[in-house]
Structures are given as structure tokens and as C-alpha cells.
Design a protein around this nucleic acid. Sequence first.
DNA 1: ATAAAAGTTTAGGGAAGTCTAAATGTTTTT
DNA 2: AAAAACATTTAGACTTCCCTAAACTTTTAT
Lengths: 219, 219
Amino acid sequence: MHSTAEENYIKAIYKLSGAGVSAVSTTALSEMLETKPASVSDMLRKLSAKDLVHYVKYHGVQLTQEGQRVALKIIRKHRLWEVFLVQKLHFTWDEVHDVAEQMEHVKSELLTQRLDEFLGHPRVDPHGDPIPTEAGELPEVEQRALATLAIDQKGVVCRVKDTQPAFLQYLNRMGIQIGSQLQVVDKIAYDNSLEINIDKNKSVILSSDVLEKIFVINP
Amino acid sequence: MHSTAEENYIKAIYKLSGAGVSAVSTTALSEMLETKPASVSDMLRKLSAKDLVHYVKYHGVQLTQEGQRVALKIIRKHRLWEVFLVQKLHFTWDEVHDVAEQMEHVKSELLTQRLDEFLGHPRVDPHGDPIPTEAGELPEVEQRALATLAIDQKGVVCRVKDTQPAFLQYLNRMGIQIGSQLQVVDKIAYDNSLEINIDKNKSVILSSDVLEKIFVINP
DNA sequence: ATAAAAGTTTAGGGAAGTCTAAATGTTTTT
DNA sequence: AAAAACATTTAGACTTCCCTAAACTTTTAT
Ligand SMILES: [Mn+2]
Ligand SMILES: [Mn+2]
Ligand SMILES: [Mn+2]
Ligand SMILES: [Mn+2]
């Protein structure tokens, strides 16, 4: 079918195609994939020939219908394996990503189906990211970045958007996990950091960088 | 560490190095790996440079101590995943091999350890093949090929030595699985086939080819 | 509106892994 | 003990994916 390299490019294009992004740039891809822009150009030509992307030289790339279908399948596998690793093999949420990066490329429709059943059709992975359904739907839940909360407002952590172990370990040390009850205690206008109370217990100061990566739903 | 291709060569050399085999030939490897002999020569030079094999041009190849260690690790992963697929995901024994061929290359010590724990430290895979321990031991159980049984002798199926789905599906149709109680009813000297009674129920004729691939322990 | 800067593609090439064809070594046959 | 047959290696080439350097296009600044 598709090579691991192709799958990684498709996934990267998908991830960089957020809301209001008309096309993904060569540089953005080269940064995400840690390759040189020249290598990206090369691969885009190939993906375009396979009709997985719409590619206009010098003007970026977009996934085709088929490209999106492929992307969601890989993301589905990645997230299902992350759930497996945490729920069945007792990995911590900072240990799963690199392993799932490998397992997501194992090819077997039956495997994905059975894994999904075995896990009880989970809706989200250990980082709160939604799991695409077998039909290729990706149900998004209403949620807001912690950074957008006003003083005294509360929220329950439902998602964290950074897969780096260092970031997740930092949250561990702060005592923040999916389901944590947070409340904004104070706002430091100087650098847009917030003082946040965790589970009606201790309070910590979180930088605006971190606040943008933590998502909450209303209490 | 090692590439998937290298791992597959090492595993193939291991599998062809049965008892009393001093060195594995280029042709034997090329057949097992479905590549051309020229490609094998090439790879043997590389594995030799990495000290994973002892290679003497024109005289075959043997695994080094380190090569054996690597081989057993891959086989351990392969067989653990096969157990997982059958016991947890309800795959049949003819469906697991190809998927395990992919999963055996996922790199993570933690994953292998945890998978082993999760499965309760199984000793054999769904085909009765022993699973190398974490320490790299491969405990072999006393067993004999069904072909070696005399008339009236009994045996319990403990292992089948052919991973091809077609063979395993044939055994399914015969009603033979691990644990089946077999008894030799008659011997057909003409072609060395045997009439075998299965679980004190129906009897079937098995060709000598098949008899060499089924292993039993004494009743 | 041009020139400079930034971004992107093309050209040429390398490593891994494979192939075919030719050369070479080993084994078997006569 | 050659000759023939067979096995193996070497030579040269191809594909995939990546790189550096140079050329080209688009954007930004003057
Ligand atoms: Mn992940
Ligand atoms: Mn995740
Ligand atoms: Mn197998
Ligand atoms: Mn097996």
C-alpha cells in the first residue's frame, strides 16, 4: 500500500491543516518531519502523482479526499494503540507516543477492528485526542484552551496538545492530568501567565505557552 | 539499532541453523527470504561487518553470539504478539503470522516486557513454538513428529511446524488443534501416510508431508 | 518599483536494499 | 583429472528516501 515515509508525510500534512489553513507549506512540513525542504518537495511530487495531495509548486499542499481518508486511518491506529498501551500495559501518557508512532504503520484491517473492540471502542486517547471512527469520522468536542479562562472561572482538563514526554512529565509534576479540576486564581498581565488552582488543592503559575496546550470543558 | 531487513535476515539464518547444521547457504537464505542469492551475498557482507554473523565466502554463514541474541529477541516478540492476537483479539492461528511479522520489528524493551506480563508469561505461542525468555533462553520440550508413531500409539498435539495459513486451515478442517488426542490406526506403507484417529472420534488419512509437521507428546 | 530576503524547487549524489547478467569458485560427473 | 553442473559473488543498475548546493519564485522592505 503506502510506505511508512508516505504515511508520515500524509499525517503531517493532516496535522498542519488546521481550521482556516488553505495550504501547508514545504517549510512547515520539513520542520514537523525533521527533514530538509528539498526532501519535502521531492515527496510532494510523489504524493501528488498518487493523488493523495493537491500540490501547486511554490504554493503549498492539501490532502485530497483519499489523502484525508488515509490520514484518519493512521491517526485512528496511533490513538488506539496509545489507549492499549496505557490501559492494558500500564504505560504512562508520556511513554506512549514513540511506540505508537511505530505501531500505527502495522497493516491489518482486522487488527485495527479487533483492537478497537478489545478496548471497548474508546472515544479519546490518553491525551484527550478524539479517535477517528472506522467510518472515518472525527468527532470533535467543544473545548477551550486554558489560556482563555477569566479569573475565578473553572474547567476540567479534557485534552493536552503536546506529545513531547518533557511536557507531559511537567504536567505530572504539577499534578495535572485528564479530569483535573482547575480554577483561575489570578492573572499576571505582564506575561499572560495564570495562577491556577488544581483540584481545590495547591496552586501553580502556568506560562502562556503551557496554557495554550491545555484544554478544558466547562465544570 | 538494526533495520527490518537486517532483522529478517538474522531470523532466517537462525531458523535455518537447526541441529547439526554447520553453516547456512546463500541459496537457502534466498529461498526463505524470497530474494535473489546476489542480494543475500550483499547483506551477509554487511552483517559480517557488524559482527552479527561469521561469514566465509562460498562457505555459508553462522550467527555470532550477538547475532543469536538478536534472533531470539525478535522471535520472542513475534511469538508474544501471536499469543496476544489469539488470546486477546480472538485471531485464529492461521491469521496471526503475517501480522506478527510486522509487529516483531517494533522497538521498545518496555513494550516487550509489559506485553509478556500482560499475557501472563506464556511459554508457547499458538502453534506450540516455545517463547524465548527475557534472558534469551529457549526451553525446548521433548516431542516427536507424528510420523514417528507406530500403529496404535497415541499422542497429544503440542506443536505444528508450518506457518502457512493454507496448512493451518487444512488442520482446522481435519479438526486438529493443539491438545488434540491422536492415535495411529493404520500405516500405509506405500506412501508412508497414516490413518489417524482424532479425539476418539473420526479418522483421517494424513500424508507423510503433513505427519512431519505435526508434533506430539506422549499421552 | 526594485532590490533584498525568504521560501521553494531542481540538480546531482549517497545509503539501503533489491535486481539481472557476468564472472568466479566449488562440487559432481564422467 | 577434466569437464560440466551448480553455487556464489561481483559489477552495474534501479528505487526510495534523504542530503547539499544552486537556481528559481514569491514576499517583504527600501
Ligand atoms: Mn501520540
Ligand atoms: Mn495521543
Ligand atoms: Mn509466526
Ligand atoms: Mn508461531
